[in-house]
Design a protein around this nucleic acid. Structure first.
Length: 509
RNA sequence: GCCGCGUUGGUCAAGGGGUUAAGACGCCUCCCUUUCACGGAGGAGUCACGGGUUCGAUUCCCGUACGUGGUACCA
């Protein structure tokens, strides 16, 4: 693109759990940065002191760590442009706001919240349900444009609470080229005089994002589409501050929408429809309410990432499964879809299934261990790995290894009797008695050999495989489920298999 | 209301003036398997609408509709 080193940032405000849309924004930032051998910075936008939620920042960092999207610079790891928390950069913003006032691109506004409210109340009408503080309204408000210099000076000297607002031109066109949307145009008459510096001295997002992106030498700014309407404010700020040449290229990413109804996907939808929205469990520090996350529900981070990247991007081929390395190599911002995507939990589950299916048994065993601990089950790691290998192709979640393989850890406590008893008879009972005895001599035999012996015995007894294979399975597992029955027997071991046959024989009488 | 952005099967989507309009998820059928799953083979299902431009529009243009975002001293 140009000679400057690529630098991107993710700038969340620490107000709660990290939404899947947020993670996708991080992902696109990260992929772009890594592809261009650039830097990915995490900046905390904590300028709204009233919305600050303790623990949220640490939570965000942990989410990024889990996803493998670690920032090169952040509040936690530091970096050449520290501090990375806007609250700690507070002092740097006022000068820019004042600079804008001096150049006539901003002004002091002394209107109290009550005055603003009454203005909106007064101007509200069916045609204009949300009156703006804009180029016409400002003429009737209390600000440095309507007050005399003397009055303004006096108010300032008295430390009268005030904000600094941008002075939007009455009638100009602001255009820019968005990396995903192409040319986008706005008319300044439609945008209001946004507050730049709040009465408490903190900047709003609008001032802060521009000042920090400039100071941190950000070259590409990716953010959600919800920011598009305020882009003209940012564009003008870059221009008015005299930094136009350094302005990053913008890319407004499509939104992730509710699967059913209308609107942006929110935490509430997850609760309502029964799927996670946050990357990890989030505990609201005030209410102690826990919102489930993808991680705790048994998603693999690589599956979560893969699922997210496909929501709005594809490489133009039929490939759907990508490793992080491939994504870094293949990601391209101009292949990002423009329209919002409805979140499909079924597809998300499919991705996880794919990843579990192809993951090595030892890793699965490690991931599954916490579930075992919770169940109070103790088992050797290599045994757990064998079990995982046997059942993984039917699991959508890590915890389902239990659902599909619990009988490897505990003898069945009940049997699917309806599937056995009606057709149970003395011949079958005799078969299993003989089979159990034969098993003793097959202690180290592989599954295929067990199966061969089993078949031989079936033939010898003039029976059919169908007569005894299912009963055998049910003796071992309790029901009509699980991997191939001889694999189960081998994994369980001959001694345990014989125990279960004996137990089954009792139960089926 | 106003402004911006968008619109290919139920969902994710490829494609982009002439195609039998890919593929994936989900759904259905069959095969494999005397469990379930995996795997395999099929199937149903789509270019929002109306005008242009054009020999020809799903594709380009304009409207309309619909969706979505914004319209805060929140980000």
């Amino acid at each position: 693109m140009d000679h400057k080193k690529v630098r991107v940032r993710f700038a969340p405000s620490p107000t709660g759990g990290l939404h899947l849309g947020g993670v996708r924004t991080v992902l696109f930032n990260y992929l772009f940065a890594k592809q261009h051998k650039g830097d990915f910075v995490l900046r905390i936008e904590d300028t709204d002191q009233t919305r600050y939620v303790p623990g949220a920042e640490e939570y965000i960092s942990e989410c990024l760590r889990w996803c493998g999207l670690n920032p090169d610079e952040s509040p936690a790891v530091g970096g050449p442009f520290a501090p990375y928390r806007q609250s700690e950069r507070k002092d740097s913003y006022r000068q820019y706001a004042e600079q804008l006032v001096k150049s006539g691109h901003a002004y002091y506004a002394f209107d109290t919240p009550e005055e603003l409210e009454s203005m909106r109340e007064r101007l509200k009408s069916p045609e204009n349900p949300a009156p703006q503080y804009n180029h016409v309204v400002r003429e009737k408000m209390r600000n440095s444009l309507t007050l005399s210099d003397a009055e303004v000076q006096e108010l300032l000297v008295k430390n009268t609470p005030h904000v600094i607002r941008i002075n939007m031109p009455a009638n100009e066109e602001v255009s820019f080229t968005d990396l995903v949307r192409g040319e986008v145009t706005f008319h300044t008459a439609q945008v209001d005089d946004k507050v730049l510096l709040k009465a408490d001295g903190m900047p709003t997002y609008h001032l802060a994002v521009v000042a920090d992106d400039y100071q941190m030498k950000i070259t590409h700014a990716f953010r959600g589409e919800e920011w598009l309407p305020s882009a003209p404010v940012h564009l003008l700020l870059w221009k008015y501050l005299g930094w136009e040449a350094d302005m990053p290229q913008w890319a407004h990413l499509p939104l992730i929408l509710k699967p059913d109804g209308n609107g942006k996907l929110s935490k509430r939808d997850g609760d309502r429809l029964g799927f996670p929205v946050y990357a990890m469990n989030w505990t609201d520090p005030a209410t102690k309410e826990v919102t489930k996350g993808f991680r705790e529900l048994g998603f693999l981070p690589e599956a979560f990432i893969n699922m997210l990247v496909m929501l709005g991007w594809n490489d133009g081929t039929e490939q759907e499964i990508f490793s992080m390395e491939e994504l870094i190599q293949k990601f391209s911002i101009d292949r990002v879809h423009k329209a919002g995507a409805k979140f499909d939990y079924e597809k998300a589950k499919w991705f996880n299934h794919q990843y579990i299916h192809h993951k090595d048994n030892e890793s699965l065993a490690t991931l599954f261990q916490p579930v075992l601990d919770e169940k109070g089950v103790t088992a050797a790691p290599d045994y757990v790995a064998t079990v995982a290998g046997l059942v993984k192709e039917r699991c959508h979640f890590i915890n389902e290894i239990w659902d599909h393989g619990f009988f490897f850890f505990q003898s069945p406590s009940s049997y699917d009797e309806a599937a056995v008893k009606p057709k149970w008879n003395a011949d079958k009972e005799a078969f299993f008695t003989t089979w159990s005895a034969q098993l003793e001599t097959l202690a180290a035999a592989p599954a295929a050999e067990l199966e061969a012996s089993f078949k031989a015995l079936v033939t010898e007894k003039n029976m059919k495989m169908g007569d005894v294979q299912l009963p055998f399975r049910i003796m071992l597992t309790g029901g009509k489920f699980g991997p191939p029955v001889f694999d189960i027997a081998v994994t369980l071991g001959i001694a345990e298999t014989r125990n279960r046959i004996a137990k089954g024989l009792e139960a089926f009488k």
